[in-house]
């Protein structure tokens, strides 16, 4: 019996010297598709981004182990020679390449309730996608005011605003906050993130409308730089885009990726990813030093 035990102990000790070998899981190959997004800027400007989807297991480090998932690597996924057109009201505009992966036109009229059709064709891969969107009515802040509160350790900006909701319709709103460091991507395409950049996007549905028919919001922000400028953008968006952005907000946050259910984002791009939306925002620029 002693021999059995000694043999057992020796064998298990030998086995324990080796680490448990991980098991490799084989996944189906990633299918390349076009990913689209759009933004409408007052002044009849429509910008569209076009890029390729790529494998989730794509290399992001060089041979030295440095992270290269930055502007250099991004470039290879941007579609630089696409034909991008927008059709509305019986008219078709071809968008010009503004930067790699970014196409824009300054002549797209913002016609409320008009249907816009986006067509994208990439000759390199022969991939073709299209999508439709309706331009929604512009909305403005019903009220908007600010308070600055200073303590010994920090300064807090309190923002209070309301939006009058049209109760006869199902409405969805997007409110974006960003500072001057958050320059548009077509100015500094896919550059390394600016540490001082601040961007926050909030979504509201008219389920939170109060008895007086208004959506009322109070927000607090720490202000790292009291001389900064804050831009607040309000847009009336479609239900589909609201659902896309709701899923987007969850998808790009680590806590949701760790603790939440996997999210496949909805899309209105035919055989593609992303969302084509034609909202019409209003802006408010706040000079924090003057508060």
């Amino acid at each position: 019996m002693k021999h059995v035990i000694y043999s057992f102990v020796i064998l298990t000790l030998v086995a324990s010297c080796t680490k448990t070998k991980p098991l490799i899981i084989t996944l189906p190959a990633s299918e390349q598709k076009l990913a689209i997004s759009s933004v409408v800027i007052p002044g009849n400007i429509l910008a569209v981004s076009v890029s390729y989807s790529f494998s989730a297991l794509e290399n992001s480090k060089d041979s030295m182990g440095n992270n290269v998932f930055d502007s250099t690597l991004y470039q290879q996924f941007l579609v630089s020679h696409a034909l991008v057109t927008i059709s509305y009201n019986g008219k078709t505009d071809t968008l010009s390449k503004l930067a790699p992966g970014i196409y824009a036109s300054a002549g797209v009229l913002q016609l409320v309730n008009a249907n816009y059709t986006l067509n994208v064709y990439d000759s390199a891969t022969q991939l073709r996608v299209f999508a439709n969107s309706t331009m929604l009515q512009k909305v403005n802040f019903d009220s908007l005011y600010f308070e600055k509160e200073k303590t010994a350790s920090d300064t807090t900006l309190k923002i209070h605003f309301s939006v009058a909701d049209n109760l006869s319709e199902e409405n969805y709103y997007m409110v974006s906050y960003f500072n001057s460091a958050a320059s548009p991507i077509y100015n500094s395409v896919f550059s390394n993130p600016n540490k001082n950049k601040f961007v926050l996007v909030e979504l509201y549905s008219d389920k939170v409308v109060e008895a007086d028919g208004k959506i009322k919001v109070d927000k607090n922000f720490f202000i790292p730089d009291e001389n900064d400028t804050l831009i607040i953008e309000l847009a009336n968006i479609s239900k589909g885009y609201y659902e896309f952005l709701s899923a987007y907000k969850k998808s790009n946050q680590l806590i949701y990726q760790l603790l939440g259910e996997p999210v496949n984002l909805p899309t209105n791009i035919n055989i593609g990813y992303g969302y084509f939306s034609t909202f019409n925002p209003s802006f408010k620029i706040v000079d924090l030093s003057k508060l």
């Binding site: 899981i25 996944l27 189906p28 990633s30 299918e31 598709k33 990913a35 997004s37 933004v39 910008a47 981004s49 890029s51 390729y52 989807s53 790529f54 494998s55 989730a56 794509e58 998932f69 991004y74 996924f77 941007l78 992966g101 997007m174 974006s176 960003f178 958050a182 320059s183 548009p184 991507i185 077509y186 896919f190 993130p193 950049k197 961007v199 996007v201 953008e233 952005l245 987007y248 998808s251 790009n252 990726q257 996997p262 999210v263 496949n264 984002l265 990813y273 992303g274």
Partner: peptide, 24 residues
Amino acid sequence: TARTSQYLMPNPTFTSIDILPVYT
């Protein structure tokens, strides 16, 4: 449920880029 693909997506204000996942 595995993450098989991903794509670049500007945020709604076109001020930053995120990488969004595609799952099986």
